[in-house]
Design a protein around this nucleic acid. Structure first.
Lengths: 161, 161
DNA sequence: GGCGATTTAATCGCGCGCAAGGCATTATCG
DNA sequence: CGATAATGCCTTGCGCGCGATTAAATCGCC
């Protein structure tokens, strides 16, 4: 089509949008966030705030570093996000008395109670999906994440064996 | 492990982070953006700006609406982004004389020349990957995108038959 | 015990991403 | 032709997401 006539051994134009793996991931994430938005809005949660709640509902309290290791985020993102959630009364942030460098994040009563209202979110989102290929897709993307996390100097990459 | 003892007919806790499809997509997108960042920085491009350039290198000129339909973004995101790229001398924005509502985006000489420098980006990024499962993964995520796009009222979803 | 190195969060600046609203241009219909 | 609706883009406000820097607390080492 274009001026790709110098592709000696190369098979095709490497810059075609449809050949990138990054673009469908980018688009899927944006579209998913757009779908979750209205559902989570009823819980007064944003999409990343919802992910933080998922982590805290599993285990609690957790340090900011531990949250970041789980979600692949750093304090530059988490600190203001957690402050907003604290302002909403979902959790409390307090320095660890045993190590004043750390900040322990603990759910409030309100934060724990919200879990019951969040229980219907997954089924609401997975409304019309076959859910067959989804399991395989999730595992594939997770494999990609673990590969990408290795190549990343950030994201507290110290959990892998 | 936790308090999932009330799982009458349900198989498992639906709120476990590792059961969500949204989370690995979210993490993979963030990690990928973090990997692309330093590489694209040498071209003075951000990650979404790179995607815009990919679209424009394929076809040109394009309206903002067409760009948004391709990238699943709306003018609220694209307009300021394109203005920054215009300020960087990569493209020009001008009203379509035939329809003054539209804005035509055209690459400048500088924008077209940048393509040669971008040619090595894909191979740089795909450095240590087997690239076997990547093709299948890309198709799976693309299928997901097309499903999600149908459920979306936005993103000018008027291309499907 | 003192002192440099490391760990852990907080802060700042910037660029998205999106919902909501606004405005000019074009299309539609009586 | 004139009113009304639809289209296409711009603007605003807010919440991330990240690189970079800063500051405090802890650890190691002598």
């Amino acid at each position: 089509m274009s001026d790709a006539r110098l592709t000696l051994g190369l098979e095709e134009d490497p810059l075609l949008l449809d050949r990138q793996i990054c673009f469908p991931l980018y688009a899927a994430t944006n579209l998913l966030g757009r779908l979750y938005g209205p559902v989570l809005r009823k819980l007064n949660l944003t999409y990343p705030q919802y992910l933080v709640m998922l982590v805290l509902w599993e285990q609690q309290p957790q340090t900011i570093g531990a949250l970041g290791a789980r979600l692949y985020l750093d304090s530059g993102t988490l600190t203001p996000l957690l402050k907003r959630m604290e302002g909403a009364g979902l959790l409390s942030r307090a320095r660890d008395p045993n190590d004043e460098r750390r900040v322990l994040v603990t759910l409030t009563e309100r934060g724990e109670t919200l879990r019951s209202q969040a229980l219907h979110v997954p089924e609401t989102m997975a409304n019309g999906y076959n859910a067959e290929g989804v399991d395989a897709l999730r595992e594939s993307v997770r494999d990609l994440v673990s590969i990408l996390a290795q190549h990343s100097t950030r994201s507290r990459g110290s959990k892998a064996a």
